[in-house]
Amino acid sequence: MAKLVLYYVHPGNKYSHANKLMFAAARGIDGITTLDLYAEYPRFDIDIDREQQRLLDHDVVLFQFPMFWYSPPSLLKEWQDLVLEHGFAYGAGGTELDGKHMMLALTAAGNDEAYAVDGYQHYPIRTFLTPLERTAGLCHMQFAAPYVLYGALRAPDDGRLNTHVTGYRQLLEAIRDDRYDFATAIERDIVEVADIPTLVRT
C-alpha cells in the first residue's frame, strides 16, 4: 500500500466545476490523505514543520490544481518556497524525499489542440510544467506524467467531466493499492482519462 497525499490547491473554489467534483471524489476514497491547501492556509502562513512531516509520512505527493496564467496557483509556489528547504529536500544532506513520487492532476481551459507547437498556446502543456518537473528532479523525486483535463470549462457540458472524475478515482485507488504503473507513467508526457485502463493493473 503506497501512502498518497493529495494537495488540492484552488484559490477560487466557489467558481470551480471540474476541480470541485474531482476533489469531492478524492475525499470519498479511504486510505489516502487529502487536504485543501487554501483552506489550510488562507493567510499563507504555512507551517513548515507540519508540511515536511506530511511529506515524510507519504510516498506519493499529488498536487491537484487549475492552470492559471500557465502556472499553479500562488499558494503552491509559496508552499514550495517554504517547505522544500535545502538540507531537507535538496542540497547538502537534503535527501528526505529521495525516491518518492510527485504527480500532478490539473485542468486547463484551452483544449488539447491549443497546447501544441502549432496551437494557439504555442507549446505542449508539459513545457509549462517544467518548473515543477525540475523541482521534483532536484528533490530526487520521480515525476510521473500529469493527469490532465483539457477544455475544463466545457467539460461539464459535453459529458467529459464525469468520465474524467471516474478515471481520477480509479487512478487514486490504483496508486493507493500499488496497482498504478509508475514505470510507464514516468515515460509519458501526460495521462488522460483514456489512458487510465492501460496504466492501472487490475
Binding site: P11, G12, Y15, P73, A109, G110, A114, Y120, L153, R154
Partner: peptide
Amino acid sequence: RGWVPPSKDDVDAVVAENE
C-alpha cells in the same frame, strides 16, 4: 476580484482572436 477564472466566452474569444 481576488481570483476569477475565465468564462467559456473568454476561451472562445481567445480562440477566435488567434484564428
